[in-house]
Each structure stands twice: as C-alpha cells, then as structure tokens.
Design a protein around this nucleic acid. Sequence first.
DNA 1: CAATTATTTAACGTATACATTAAAATATTC
DNA 2: GAATATTTTAATGTATACGTTAAATAATTG
Lengths: 224, 224
Amino acid sequence: MSVEAKSKSHSIRAVDALRALIFAGELPPGSDHLESELAEKLGMSRTPVREATLVLESQGLLEVRPRKGVRISALSADDMREIYEVLTELESLAASLAAEAHYSEQDLSRLKSATLEMEASVEADDREGWASADAAFHDELVRLGGNRRIQTIVSNFNDQVRRARAMTLHMRPMPRKSNEDHRALYEAIARGDAKAAREIHWRHRTEAKDMLINLLNQHGLRRV
Amino acid sequence: MSVEAKSKSHSIRAVDALRALIFAGELPPGSDHLESELAEKLGMSRTPVREATLVLESQGLLEVRPRKGVRISALSADDMREIYEVLTELESLAASLAAEAHYSEQDLSRLKSATLEMEASVEADDREGWASADAAFHDELVRLGGNRRIQTIVSNFNDQVRRARAMTLHMRPMPRKSNEDHRALYEAIARGDAKAAREIHWRHRTEAKDMLINLLNQHGLRRV
DNA sequence: CAATTATTTAACGTATACATTAAAATATTC
DNA sequence: GAATATTTTAATGTATACGTTAAATAATTG
C-alpha cells in the first residue's frame, strides 16, 4: 500500500485549495475574484470551481455575487460578535454534555494533555504553540460533547474567525487566565458537573469574545 | 410594474423544487435518486441539479453519494436529539438576546399576535392553525434575537425536522401547556428579563424534544 | 450638455460531449 | 464451484461551447 495522496476530484481539491488560499491571506477578505481567474489559478475548468464556491459559500467563507465574482468574506466586529455568541453557546452546551457523559480519566487524556501543553507554551512564551494547543483543547471538548451537529457548526465558525484570531494572537496579553479556565473546565467535566462546566466555559468564551472585539476595535481593524 | 414571477435561474429553481418535493414526501427520506432522474423530473440538464444538490447537502436535507445518487436524509431519534439540542440552545440564546434588547410592545406585536393565534387555535381544536402560529412565534422570536447566524442555523434545522413535526402533530396532546410557556416567554421578554426568557424557552424546547422523541419511538418511526 | 436609448462586452448560467471510475457482470482459473 | 481476474456498464466528474443577461460603453436626442 503506497503513501501517495489519494487522487481526489478536482471539485474537492478546489475546496481545499481555496480554503488554503483564503486562510493564507492570498485571497484577502473583501477581495473579488472571477470564476475564470480562480479556475486558471487552480489549473482546472470553471465547473469544479463553481461547485467549490457553492460549498464555501455555505460555510460562510465567501459570497457568490453573479457578474462581480466571488467575494471573500470580511467580518465586521458585529459579525464577530454574532459568531462568538453562537460559538459560546454551542461549546458551552458541548461542555455540559461532556460532563454528563461521565468520561473516564483515560477518555479525557487528550483534553488533559492539551491543558498541559497550553501551560507549557505560556511558560515558554510560545504564542503559536499555545494557540495550537488551545485549538486542540476546544476541538476535543466539542468532540467529547458527542453532538455532531455542534461539531460541524463550531468547525465552520472557527474557520470564519481564523484570520481574526491569528491577527490578534500577538496583540493580546499572554493567556494566563485562559489556562486557569481550561484547567477548571477539565476538573468540572472530570467530576461530571455539567452545570459548572457550562458556566465556566460560557464565561471563558464570553471573555475571549470581548477581548477579541476590543482588540479589533483598538487596532482599527474594521473588517477582517 | 408587472406582478409576474421573477425568472430565477434553473439552479435556484432546482433548489426550491427539490425542497418542495422533499417536504411533500415525494422524495421520501432514505430514498436514492440519480442526478439524471432529477434533471429529467425538473426539466433541466444535470448541471443546475448538481449545483442544487450541493446546496441542499450543506443544509442537511440530502446527501450526495457518488454513483449511488443523492440520498434524501432520514433522521434517527438520535439525530433528532442532536438537532433539538442545538435548536434549544440557540433559540434560548435568541430569547435572552431579545429580552436584553428591551423592545417596545409595538416591536413585540407579532410575537403577541402569534400567542393569541395559538390560543385561539387550541380553543378551536385546529392543530394545523396552531402549528402555523407556533412556527410564526418561533421565527419571530429568533428574528427579535437579532443574530443572523442563529436565524440561518435555526431555519436549516427546522427544515430538517419539518416532516417529523408534521407527522407527530396529530399524535400529540393538544398543546395547552405549550401556550402557557409562550405567554410566559412573551412576558419575560417584554419586561426585559433575559435570564427568565432563556430558562423558560430552554425548558419549553427541552420538553418539546422529549415529547417528539417519545412519540417517534412509541410509533416505531425509526427514521423519518 | 444631460439624459436617455442603443449597442457592446464580458461574466455567468446551462447544456452537452466526453473522460473517469466504481460497481456490476462476465469470464477464467485452480 | 468458489475465488479471482477481466470486461462491461453506467453514473459521475470535467471541459467546453454557447446562450443569456447585467453592466459598461457608445450613440442619440431634446
């Protein structure tokens, strides 16, 4: 069995490639792009590109504007608030569900290791490392919640705020308080305290939302 | 200015037509359909049908299964639980946001009239009328919340459980308790009590979820 | 010259031909 | 005759030609 990349359809590769270009900032928020341009850039015909744009539109990463090209989504502070409201609510539900599931310590090992990694990263002043562990923690939290609809929505919304998070990562103070929250959340889930898990995470996310929006406003980032 | 229907693209009409066929049960849950069949049925080529199926897949109404046709989504009791968990959480958040907005009585008039219509329908033993007013109430509640992301998600999920609700409408007891909940929620929003609004609606939806799932199980409806 | 109308352009929307490939059917081998 | 290999089939995936139409440009008119 070889390790070659499985040859996916052009359509799927277009989705992946466009996502990557958007996240890398090569298709910047607010910019417009004709189907034919994108098709040429990706080395395929318009057909799979059109299909990809429909998928990405449904994920909120771009907007199809007939005869004006697709516009890469640019989020205002208000959009950010909306998205974080939903993320806060659904992740808090996931935290509550995870606590109710009464997982064993072993089941929670990945959550635990993510908290340890975050703490180590803060010690080492490694923001990228912290961000990566933080993402792993949140992913695992939602996975433990066990509701696949929540997983899908949260994943979409995280993609949408990805650039904003990356931009503010180096503007914010080192996330020491954040680590305490994660540890407290871990404990609440481990002891099966659904109410506490929900409340701890709700406050955590609400604070993260306020900080992100304040940072964007302070730095005059109207749309990202 | 004429009142003729604006001539939409085939692609958009395919989305509308397929949605209608799914809701009408002409494309029953679990059934498979080739692109070419659907294209013929809708009197257009495969191209716009393919685009429509991508959109509907992103809305959870069907699943594209290469070489096996598109499969109309069939929900298990567990799927229903997942969807209702999300609906409960997001509508409750919307209720809380609506209360925080401190709307005037005038702003809340549609919410009020929907409650009155529900009460009248229950008096008149008119389940369809009640269901229609109930839907209007929930739509308006979410609209008043003011978060468009919530509106989109809730609308999608309501579409997904539409058939199940229609099926159980005549199995359930007349929704008298439900009307009390709606009235209490209206009062909480009107007096700006966000916490109460959230809790009242959360309990309301949770009870609705439990009833729906019990009804589906009692009647042996494995997948709808 | 401003406003309107006509024309042109270019991008999208659609149909269609064809390439690709998973699945089914058939043939082959032991 | 079961297991495997081959061929065939059929549905999808893709490219492309072309029709349609919104937007831009040019022409006209008062």
